[in-house]
Amino acid sequence: MAIRQIITYPHPVLREEAKKVTTFDQELKTLVQDMADTMFDAPGVGLAANQIGIARQIIVVDRSEQPDDKNYVAYINPILSDGEGSVVDDEGCLSVLEYQSKVKRFQKVRLTAQDIEGKPVEFVAEDRLARILQHEVDHLRGTLFIDRLSSLKRTLYKKKLKKILQHQE
């Protein structure tokens, strides 16, 4: 399919609330495949549609067991509930240039969504998968992982980003 451009902070589409998907057709399947190709090319472990400029409730998650595998799953209109436990671990983001930080997330969450055909999907995710799902669903709400950091860390990142962007010009 096609590798799309990943939108980076501070682009406004990353702050948009994604709209619910109501049509499950070939266009959706093509978009999901493009998202997966883009995620693997980046490389990343998850990607939300607004990260490629499309504010729709679609995420893809890398489910590969081996480094060379390209196994993914798409979740449409995902909703997280029943968060349990608490884990602090490093996070980065394809849309947040050159930055990683420790972020507190639930250790376990319930995902309710639809698959690419529109069929209901529901399961409990733990640990790494739970973290990825929370990160990607945040994107659909217009939230970035840097929003979960202290104001000092966010301010320091914004200063760093300003220098990165000046250097790119």
Rank of each mutant, 00 (worst) to 15 (best):
R148I: 00
S151N: 08
K158P: 00
L111Q: 01
H139A: 08
I132D: 04
N77A: 06
L111P: 00
R63K: 14
Q100L: 06
V109N: 04
D62S: 03
D90W: 11
E91H: 05
R131F: 14
S64T: 11
N77W: 02
C93R: 05
P67I: 09
D90E: 15
H135K: 07
S64V: 07
L97A: 15
R110D: 11
L133Y: 01
L94W: 06
R131I: 14
A130M: 07
D147W: 04
E126I: 02
F123W: 10
D89K: 08
D90M: 13
V109G: 06
S86Y: 05
S150G: 15
G83K: 12
V96C: 08
N71I: 14
L156E: 15
P78H: 05
A130R: 04
K108M: 11
D127K: 14
Q134V: 10
V103E: 07
K153H: 10
H135F: 03
S95M: 05
L149S: 09
V137C: 07
P120T: 03
T143E: 13
N71Y: 07
V88I: 13
D82M: 00
F145Y: 14
G118R: 03
T112I: 10
L133F: 02
D89M: 07
E122F: 01
D62Q: 05
I146W: 09
E136M: 07
G83I: 00
E136W: 06
S151Y: 10
K108P: 06
K104S: 11
A125G: 09
L80F: 08
N71R: 11
K119S: 14
D62M: 02
I116V: 13
F106R: 12
F145Q: 07
G118Y: 01
R110Y: 04
G92W: 03
E65A: 15
L144Y: 09
R131E: 12
L94N: 10
K119C: 01
H135T: 06
V121C: 09
A113Y: 01
K104G: 04
A74M: 03
Y75G: 01
Q114M: 11
V103G: 12
V124C: 07
A74C: 07
L152T: 12
R148Y: 06
R131N: 12
V121M: 11
D82H: 10
E65I: 04
L149A: 09
R110T: 15
K70G: 09
T112R: 08
F106C: 13
L111G: 01
G83W: 03
V87C: 03
L133N: 02
E65Q: 15
V87W: 05
K119A: 15
S86T: 09
L133K: 00
I146P: 01
C93W: 03
R110K: 13
D69P: 02
G118S: 03
G118H: 02
E126P: 00
A74T: 01
A130S: 13
L156A: 14
E126D: 10
L133Q: 03
G92R: 02
E91Q: 07
D68K: 12
E122M: 10
L144I: 01
T112V: 13
Q114H: 14
P78N: 08
